[in-house]
Amino acid sequence: MYQVIGRRLLQSIPMLLFISIVCFALIKFAPGDPVQSFVTPNMKPEDVERMRHSLGLDQPNYVQYFLWLKHLLTGDFGYSLVNNRPVLEQIVTRLPATVGLMGASLVIAVILAIPLGMIAALNRNRFVDKLLNLISYVGISIPTFWLSILLIYVFAVQLHLLPSMGMRTIGQDSFLDIVKHAVLPCIVLSFSFLSVYIRYVRSNTIGQLKEDYVQIQYAFGSSKLRILFRHVMKNVLLPIITLLGMSFGDLITGAIITETVFSWPGLGSLGVTAAFGFDYPIIMGITMFSSLMLIVGNLLADILYSVVDPRIKV
């Protein structure tokens, strides 16, 4: 098992390298020049060129890439072009906020999606199924920013039950305060994940209920609940594990809109600011983290597969 994990991690190196080349090329081919966004009309051309030189932007693109890569291999993600702070420090500072929010949202979505999806499957084409379908369709189609604004208006502005923005009340640093701030963004994100997951669980459960092993259990007189939770659930979980594995990348960048609307101090909002400012060290840093998480997520999903269904080998 460990050998397999080691081999898979080694295999991810060329993948990460490829991603970094594509990402760097996209940034460089995009219209816009980081230096132009720093200069003022009053600056003399030689000052602008000095600035370009100091940023290393006067070098050919491939040289810039290899320099970036060289530093990365020594653990140096470079400095932001905009605020001069180390990229790694900024990512690490904001990582818990994003991972916490996305992690909590994913867990809530999965915990709710499994029973709700199964209930929908058991009540196929009945009122409950249609209601859950409707909720699911609404959740998939509703724009995140619209739902966010609506929740803020109702729960913060009208009912004064929850804060509308940020991760904490200024001057407070309690866990409860953070939870209070996380409620609304978490609802938005969970609703979005939940709507997708319910559909998966429902269709998988319907498929599983037709399998022979379920009919045999019925023949042996097992109760519906026992069949569902003891036998069917395991099989239903498999596609959810795949989805969760794929969602690992989202842990870093999946909440861009939600973070922006709720002023949540995570990586999503950092990425947006970096994109506007052509701050390529930050963009590259976030992309690398996100890609790594996606690779790790897929690996974990494969391992979990073998745990849930021993017939499957990693």
């Binding site: 604004i149 803020i152 913060a156 502005v157 509308s164 923005m165 002023s263």
Partner: peptide
């Protein structure tokens, strides 16, 4: 506060 609509509500 990046989003103008949300910050108006805040």
């Amino acid at each position: 506060a990046k989003d103008p609509n949300a910050s108006n509500l805040a």
